[in-house]
């Protein structure tokens, strides 16, 4: 059966998700911060983590942004191949949702329309939209606002296959070490391994959407996630970079097939305000 989804519903949903994502720290991140407090041996580190948790409480109760950097609005669309979008341009509807959500939510407008001449667009558009066609007849929308401070510390490298797992680990740990206090630790590290240049970056971003602490389904990737988390938390950077053992809350590795000549590795760093929230349309589809 073919389902119809109105673009007006898409706009209203995106607007709501923009506000929700910026006001509420996701439950998985809250749980992970709680675990970090228990594991942190630096008194200053524990104090910083307490401030971060108190901040989340204030933001949720008062409906104000967790962070002043309400981000580049990254929107993931998983569109069922049997769904039918009516009422206009889907991407225009998403951008209208961003415009509305950022205005109504008193969120910061952080986007310049041209990377060289740099004039603020004034409404946080355009969003970065990633679309995937999937089986089914619904539309899943995920809004993940991404801060500039952590995005700026991300990196990609085309390794030689001979460098192997050891080379991957070295590059990831070096990237986190070089980032130091800049990306607002404790951070979440998304690692994309394989594919082409752009595929590695895209899956590294997608890795940030996974619930914190949920291991990869691939056994080799799950082992790598554990080892990387241990090594990163031995760097000593700690909460706010003031020293401590919670430098990262989680490392998520996503894999893709690779060319016989290539071993691309992308490291996408997220701050502790690891914002992501989803909705499925039509809403009735959920029940």
């Amino acid at each position: 059966m073919q389902r119809t989804i109105e673009t007006a519903t898409v706009t209203a949903t995106v607007a709501r998700l923009c506000r929700e994502a910026n006001f509420n720290l996701p439950p998985d991140v809250c749980r992970s911060l709680e675990e970090a407090v228990a594991a942190e041996s630096s008194p200053t580190g524990r104090e910083v983590l307490a401030q971060i948790r108190e901040n989340a409480l204030i933001a949720a109760t008062e409906e104000v942004p967790l962070c002043q950097d309400t981000g580049f609005t990254v929107v993931f669309l998983e569109l069922g191949q049997d769904a039918h979008i009516t009422g206009g341009d889907l991407y225009a509807a998403v951008n209208e949702g961003v415009r509305r959500g950022y205005r109504e939510g008193y969120l910061r407008k952080s986007i310049v329309g041209h990377p060289l001449t740099r004039v603020n667009t004034g409404d946080n558009t355009p969003a970065v939209i990633h679309t995937e066609i999937v089986p089914g007849d619904g539309l899943r929308i995920t809004v993940a606002p991404k801060g500039g401070g952590s995005e700026n510390m991300s990196a990609i490298r085309m390794l030689k296959p001979a460098e192997g797992v050891a080379g991957v680990k070295k590059f990831v740990v070096e990237t986190v070490e070089r980032a130091g206090p800049n990306p607002c630790p404790p951070i979440v590290v998304g690692v994309g391994i394989g594919g082409t240049f752009e595929k590695a970056a895209a899956i590294a971003k997608k890795a940030l959407l996974r619930d914190l602490g949920q291991p990869s389904e691939d056994p080799a990737a799950a082992v790598l996630e554990k080892e990387l988390l241990r090594e990163i938390n031995c760097l000593g950077i700690g909460p706010a970079g003031l020293g401590g053992n919670s430098t990262a809350l989680a490392v998520h590795v996503e894999l893709y097939a690779a060319h016989i000549a290539s071993l691309p590795v992308a490291v996408n760093i997220n701050c502790h305000a690891a914002r992501h929230v989803s909705a499925v349309l039509p809403a009735a589809f959920l029940r």
Binding site: I52, E54, L66, P181, C184, G241, L242, H272
Partner: peptide
């Protein structure tokens, strides 16, 4: 250094 991300608290 202020605590990055503690924006609602700092406000």
């Amino acid at each position: 250094g202020a605590v990055g991300g503690a924006a609602a608290l700092i406000a």
